[in-house]
Simulated scan of single mutants.
Amino acid sequence: MNTTPEHDERMVKITFASVYPHYLAKVERKGRTKEELHQVITWLTGFHDAEIEAFIADGLTFKDFFDKAHLNPLASLIKGSICGYKIEEIENPLTKNVRYLDKLVDELAKGKKMEKVLRG
């Protein structure tokens, strides 16, 4: 199932700052840490802690966030379903990148070893 144009347009408007607290709460509820969450974000995007915090403070949209990112070349190894969509079938690049991040956060929260989450 591929995403709809409306779904893809919603990804453009969502701010990273609005989703980040949900990512953090999800991983902390499962015994993981903010540092581990940042490690996952850094692996995917190349952003470090100060940049992540600045993006939250600035209220960047996911579009702006991923436009500035240097996506990890191994990101294409992230496969599976998230929010009812098979990641490898998503055609819109922004939606795919957001779902990559969602999938990594899910794997972290589910207790996967960091080496596996980071495709190491």
Score class of each variant (00 low, 15 high):
115 E>L: 08
92 N>E: 14
77 L>I: 01
37 L>F: 08
52 I>G: 13
99 R>P: 00
71 L>Y: 03
69 A>D: 10
2 N>W: 05
22 H>R: 15
82 I>R: 03
103 K>H: 05
80 G>A: 03
25 A>H: 12
82 I>N: 02
41 I>L: 11
25 A>E: 15
42 T>F: 09
99 R>C: 13
73 P>W: 03
59 G>R: 09
11 M>S: 02
95 T>W: 00
71 L>S: 11
12 V>T: 12
27 V>F: 05
27 V>Q: 04
3 T>I: 10
13 K>N: 11
51 E>N: 10
107 E>I: 01
63 K>Q: 15
15 T>W: 10
29 R>K: 15
106 D>H: 13
116 K>D: 14
28 E>R: 12
81 S>Q: 13
100 Y>F: 13
76 S>E: 13
64 D>F: 07
68 K>E: 15
49 D>S: 12
62 F>A: 05
103 K>M: 11
76 S>F: 07
79 K>M: 01
7 H>T: 06
95 T>R: 05
66 F>M: 09
38 H>E: 15
79 K>N: 02
18 S>P: 06
48 H>V: 14
100 Y>A: 01
109 A>C: 10
11 M>T: 00
76 S>Y: 06
71 L>R: 07
34 K>P: 05
101 L>N: 01
119 R>C: 12
98 V>P: 08
65 F>Y: 14
83 C>L: 13
27 V>M: 06
103 K>A: 08
48 H>F: 11
66 F>Y: 12
92 N>F: 04
118 L>W: 12
117 V>W: 02
44 L>K: 07
99 R>S: 11
100 Y>M: 02
19 V>C: 09
75 A>D: 11
18 S>N: 13
40 V>Q: 07
37 L>D: 11
